[in-house]
Amino acid sequence: MKGAFLIVKGHVEGLGERGDAMIRVENLVKEYKTKKGIIIGVDHVNVTIEKGEVFGIVGYSGAGKSSFIRCLNLLETPSNGEIYIDGVGLTSLSKQELRAARLKIGMIFQHFYLISAKTVAENIAFALKAANHPRKEINDRVHELLEMVGLADKAEVYPAQLSGGQKQRVGIARALANNPSVLLCDEATSALDPSTTKSILKLLKKINKELGITIVLITHEMEVVKEICDRVAVMQDGKFVEEGPVYEVFAHPQEELTKHFISSVLQFDLPAAIVEHCAGTIVKIQFKGAVAGEGVISDMLQQFNVKGNFLHGKIEYIQDIPLGIFIMELQGSSSAVADAISYLEKRTEQVEVIRDAA
């Protein structure tokens, strides 16, 4: 089977000792010494990432995302704490053992870092040559990887002749060369246009599903998290301030920072002019899961003596599960509107009265 040799060659003693956790981070701290004093990049972070999971880390520039992800393969040496990758404690390894362990940790970058003087095939082969694989096996693996990332016809092309999306595909192929268990993505789509970003995320999702590779992805875009991640952590000032399954974080954000990020995907601010022209009660209704496909609002309008006017609405599919949010005006007697809202509260996930006509 093509590529199977890489799994053997890249084996590190002790892999798989700690059950289903692919990545376990304990009390991770990263400090930087500057002329102005010590700056904390990562501040006592603890997290467990399961095998086969796509784990997103979202935050603004300076939040500590890049410092955290670069500590996972010890490109940055932690100031304190422990990092386990598939049961192997990286911080206790010798230099030789760390080189072997890194074969199982692929990484792709925002700016690609391809060697301009080498062809696409040579860029991918570089990682295999560094791991001392025979030429014949290298050629077979390069061909396999080019097919996987959709660049089979670009083997002899140089990076300057590629688009940004094609360059990132080369970067992904290079990161997968040694059959890693973990793929680290450092702002992998930030330099790409929206259409290309979607194609790269689709490729990463395919890689995750077909190869079972655990992916850790950092970004400042919640749209990226929505598209591909299973769980997400929101990072601020070196800390994980909120963490959980992507759907639950979207449906029930706890921190103001998280709510701000989600608002970039689920934007529901009504213009003041619209609100001023509404005479009735304005409510925001959230539908979660299967309820989003039910006729809750039509049932409510039929059962109670109220009129409904839709002002805004959207259904997003997160991990193929619908999350619907609608804003509407309810007109009728105060008692009928109150009964209608009570009914909605029983049938839906959440009802918020934005403005009470009373």
Rank of each mutant, 00 (worst) to 15 (best):
S181I: 01
V224P: 08
V241C: 07
R141D: 07
A177C: 05
C185L: 00
E156N: 15
V149C: 02
R141S: 07
T189P: 06
K154I: 00
G164N: 01
I200V: 15
I124P: 06
L128K: 05
V157E: 11
T197V: 11
V225Q: 07
P194Q: 06
R169K: 06
T119M: 12
D237C: 12
V149T: 02
E227W: 12
E137K: 14
L183E: 01
I215V: 13
V149F: 05
T189D: 04
C229E: 08
P194S: 05
G212N: 10
R231D: 01
K154P: 00
E122V: 04
E221L: 10
E122S: 08
N132A: 15
N123W: 02
H143I: 12
G150I: 02
A131Y: 11
S195M: 13
L183Y: 03
I172K: 01
V142N: 03
L151V: 00
M222N: 06
G212E: 11
A175I: 06
E223F: 09
E210D: 15
H133P: 00
L183F: 06
K167H: 06
E187C: 05
A233D: 05
A155P: 12
I218Y: 01
Q168A: 02
L128R: 08
N179H: 14
P159T: 08
N178Q: 08
Q166I: 01
A155L: 08
V216Q: 03
L184Q: 04
D237G: 13
A160Q: 14
N179I: 01
V216Y: 04
E156G: 13
S163F: 02
P180L: 01
V149A: 02
I213V: 13
L192D: 04
L145P: 00
N178G: 02
I228G: 11
P180N: 00
Q236I: 03
D153T: 07
E156F: 12
E210C: 10
M148P: 04
S163L: 04
L151D: 00
A160M: 13
A188C: 09
R135P: 12
V142M: 08
D237P: 10
N132L: 14
L204M: 15
S163D: 01
L183I: 05
L183V: 03
V225H: 07
K198E: 14
A177S: 11
R174L: 01
T119V: 10
Y158R: 10
K239F: 11
L217G: 03
D230C: 12
E147I: 06
L128M: 10
R231H: 11
D153E: 14
E187A: 04
